[in-house]
Amino acid sequence: MKTNFKFLAFITFLGLFLNSCSSDDDNVAFNAPIISNFEYGEGSEHSTEQVAYKGSDIHLEAEINAEAKVSSITLSIHAHDLTVGDDEVDWDFEQVFTDSNYLVINPTFHEHIDVPANIPAGEYHIELIVTDELGNSTEIEGHIDVLDPITLSDFSIDTSVVRGSDFHAEFMVNAVNGIHNITVDIHADGITPGEGEVEWDFEQAYEEGYHEQTEVEFHKHIDVPVTAPAGEYHMLFTVEDENGNTKTYETHIDVTAS
């Protein structure tokens, strides 16, 4: 009897022990994912400088430590109170990544996101959210400056010229992708040629001395025919870079008879 009693007691104890272990396993708490080494910048250079250019892309990378498998990674990018200019649109980006290489324990996030060419330049907010299959989530955020790939500055352009002479135009050009060419377009604003006058429209593309340069001063003297009708002329300067991005500057010049 004693032997049977001891055996039954042992079996009971073993059952309680295993049940306790099972309960402990059921109550194991998994920590939320940890995001570290979050970096982003200009995509073509895999830069960590927090700058990108319109019409290019943003490189993003982060290490994720997840005790439970990741179920999704959400990336959002949006502007901070930027004014939308002519021919520009708001950019509000959001994408949920559920690629198989991310739905694992401890994945590395690495993506390149295209930046539209027609959005306002300025500061954009970036947010990365990682959620595991147990519903735990972690987010990390930062900011990136989206810049114009072409900038024009320091304009010095004559506002009037006597026909039969020339006028001076100069300005600085910065183009991160290199300059393809610089075009000057001049045409009259509704001027009717008089006797002895000939309608004057000027258009020329300049490459020599500018092609493939990233920083240069445009400096030209443009002849105005002596037969050009006097009046106001519209001028458009267009810089095109090697990626097809363009930047324009508009102004007017008065052509006088003397």
Rank of each mutant, 00 (worst) to 15 (best):
Gly85Leu: 13
Ala169Ser: 15
Gln95Cys: 01
Ser160Asn: 12
Thr192Lys: 06
Asp185Pro: 02
Thr256Gln: 09
Val28Tyr: 12
Val51Ile: 15
Val239Met: 06
Ser165Gly: 02
Asn4Arg: 14
Val224Lys: 03
Thr248Arg: 15
Thr74Gly: 01
Ile73Arg: 03
Asn4His: 11
Val216Trp: 08
Ser76His: 01
His221Lys: 12
Pro33Trp: 02
Ala230Ser: 15
Lys6Cys: 02
Glu250Gln: 14
Phe155Ala: 03
Val184His: 08
Lys6Asp: 10
Glu195Trp: 05
Glu212Asn: 15
Asn4Lys: 15
Ser23Gln: 13
Leu14Val: 13
Lys247Trp: 05
His80Cys: 04
Glu242Asp: 11
Gln95Asn: 11
Asp158Met: 01
Asn181Cys: 02
His110Arg: 12
Lys220Gly: 06
Thr98Gly: 00
Glu67Ile: 04
Asn177Arg: 11
Ile186His: 03
Ala121Val: 07
Glu195Tyr: 09
Asp254Leu: 12
Thr227Ala: 06
Phe7His: 09
Glu250Tyr: 10
His168Met: 05
Ala121Leu: 03
Phe171Gly: 06
Leu152Gln: 05
Leu82Pro: 06
Glu139Met: 14
Leu128Glu: 09
Ala9Met: 10
Asp148Phe: 12
Ser160Val: 00
Asp201Leu: 04
Glu39Met: 11
Glu133Pro: 06
Val224Gly: 03
Ser137Pro: 07
Asn106Ser: 10
Ile73His: 06
Glu133Leu: 13
Leu60Ile: 15
Ala62His: 06
Pro229His: 07
Ser22Asn: 14
Glu94Tyr: 03
Glu195Leu: 10
Trp200Arg: 00
His187Tyr: 15
Thr214Val: 10
Phe13Tyr: 03
Glu45Cys: 03
Gly122Tyr: 04
Tyr124Glu: 08
Phe218Gly: 03
Leu8Cys: 06
Thr3Lys: 15
Asp25Met: 13
Val28Asp: 08
Thr48Ala: 11
Val162Tyr: 00
Thr251Asp: 13
Glu49His: 10
